[in-house]
């Protein structure tokens, strides 16, 4: 279960996507997510799916790993699709039996929603697969830096984010270790009813909290020892620079949006008002 967590996972590679500037990647991801919701018919939606697939192929991340990031959202996708099918009205009626009414609009909305969510998750996981957590937080810090005018401590927030991401694998290891230690003392974590299972977690959660707090204190001391004060004036070892490929990728996305607008206009909307 714990091994399914894909947040902050990085897949080492040398593709164009890996080499793109992290700031640009974040902007492009946001633009892409917005443009998914612009699609009004199957042609433009198809174009988005095609683009998503191309991104995966270009990145060199194995399909298996991409599928793993979709697995946790399978339930949400199924659930929203079912609700859409049964509750959205309009268009031609397909089934009209007692309390069940299914219309073309319902089916289309369900299909659109499912595709959109999957594309959205795949593209955002491509962002984390091709960008190291440090690059990602550096980029977020840079993108948020205009907020400094409003006295928001952007660099401190970025440091907090870096640390949080840094400790995900450590905590996963820790949970594994503590679970095994308690299992060795006969703790039964897999059987019993709901209440029993919750109770069985106490021997894992208490040591986890204790060691997390200890770790946090140690980390703070270590940062103090290296004279970390945060705030303004801190410079970076690796400066981020935009290259030609970053602008080229921006251009590709703009062409994609133009394509969607044209397809939307040319084929019209699939949903009937």
């Amino acid at each position: 279960m714990i091994k399914d967590i894909t947040i902050g996972q990085y897949f080492n590679g040398k593709s164009v996507l890996h080499r793109l500037d992290a700031r640009m990647k974040i902007i492009l991801t946001v633009v892409f997510i917005v443009s998914i919701f612009l699609c009004q018919n199957f042609w433009s939606l198809g174009l988005m799916v095609l683009f998503t697939l191309m991104t995966v192929i270009v990145s060199g991340v194995p399909f298996k790993m991409v599928l793993r990031s979709i697995k946790p959202i399978a339930i949400i996708v199924t659930f929203t699709s079912l609700i859409n099918i049964f509750y959205v009205r309009g268009g031609t009626s397909l089934v009209d039996w007692r309390f069940i009414h299914i219309t073309t609009n319902g089916v289309f909305t369900a299909l659109f929603m499912a595709t959109r969510i999957v594309c959205l998750v795949v593209i955002s996981s491509m962002l984390t697969y091709t960008t190291t957590p440090t690059m990602l937080t550096d980029a977020i810090e840079k993108l948020l830096s205009p907020l400094k005018i409003f006295k928001i401590p952007v660099s401190t927030l970025a440091m907090m984010m870096t640390l949080a991401l840094r400790f995900i694998p450590t905590l996963v290891d820790e949970i594994d270790r503590i679970t095994n230690a308690q299992k060795a003392r006969g703790a039964n974590l897999d059987d019993g009813n709901f209440v029993q299972r919750i109770k069985a977690l106490v021997p894992i959660i208490v040591p986890l909290f204790v060691s997390s707090i200890r770790r946090a204190v140690e980390l703070a001391d270590a940062m103090d020892c290296r004279c970390y004060t945060g705030g303004p004036g801190r410079t970076r070892m690796k400066q981020m620079k935009f290259h030609l490929r970053d602008f080229a990728s921006l251009f590709v996305i703009l062409v994609l949006i133009a394509g969607i607008v044209v397809l939307n206009y040319y084929f019209g909307a699939v949903l009937v008002k």
Binding site: N180, A181, A184, G186, I204, P207
Partner: peptide
Amino acid sequence: REARFKVGLCFQYPEYQLF
């Protein structure tokens, strides 16, 4: 389950299992 009790295993740094 019987093996769990017949073979007592004490992990590295076992003090982190106290709760």
